[in-house]
Design a protein around this nucleic acid. Sequence first.
DNA 1: TATGAAATTTAGCCAAGGCTAACTCAAGGG
DNA 2: CCCTTGAGTTAGCCTTGGCTAAATTTCATA
Lengths: 157, 157
Amino acid sequence: MDNSHDRPGVRDVTLAPADERAAADQADAFASVRNAHESEVAEDYVELIAELVDSNGEARPVDLAERLGVKPPTVTKNISRLVRNGLVRRERYRSIFLTEKGVALADACRRRHRIVVATLIALGVDSETAERDAEGIEHHVSDETLVAFEQFVTSRG
Amino acid sequence: MDNSHDRPGVRDVTLAPADERAAADQADAFASVRNAHESEVAEDYVELIAELVDSNGEARPVDLAERLGVKPPTVTKNISRLVRNGLVRRERYRSIFLTEKGVALADACRRRHRIVVATLIALGVDSETAERDAEGIEHHVSDETLVAFEQFVTSRG
DNA sequence: TATGAAATTTAGCCAAGGCTAACTCAAGGG
DNA sequence: CCCTTGAGTTAGCCTTGGCTAAATTTCATA
């Protein structure tokens, strides 16, 4: 009954160079995704801070927390990293503002966000779903893909 | 010189219900992304195990590690979680196989992956970039968006 | 102006998912 | 038949990004 020790499958598959290349490419792709994930939080925060400054004149941790769906201490902790990375300026117990570098990143993110949303809508996705999915998708859209999206949405005015 | 205690911006912004709703929706969207991230690893592993079983007859941790671009101990640790979640079957020091549930998830993932790649290509992205970006995008494509993608790629022969 | 409520931060916890070093096991060759 | 070698695992560490509870600070207002 117990044949679990018969090791099935082929062990002598000597991978051809082509397959090794493919494996390496795939590994790179996965590594990129993991890397992208590390900057996702930074992008989300910076994008949101820019929005809040535009609409409220300032970005308070409590508002960031509400918009992001996390608790204030989480915001404090993550903002500290943004400060370390030179994206954000802060004084204790005061609001948060973007540095020049932060503004540049926010602008790029918001542009990319708009293009992704527009593309999804152009493909027939309803705007609510488009907004929702874009939040996750945008961080994984390369520059090349963004160009393709942009051409697609503009070329059908 | 030190005017840092002047708190700039408007504090009396009483959020209208509409804005509160928008904030809650945005918080939900971010929460979804965080949630999606938790299942990304599971999806990547299951998808890859299915591929390896198809092509090699078995999925060895060392091959998974190579394809994923991580070290073998990482694979062991993550596979343990998949076992806990009933997606994978394993015996110590032997290859890894999918459970029925794992096969179902792998099939859904591979289908979604194909559709995302096809959509990107249809939008003018070169196939290499499409493959790369899809690896990150696929986890954030909702069912509604997937339907839209599918119609788009089929409706243009 | 004193005080209480709300905002912010600190401290300390947890799980996920990476890593290296070191150990265990399986299988083939001498 | 042992023993080397490579596959797999264990142990232990790190960072990220969540959380709660408990300070601390600010600000409005009584």
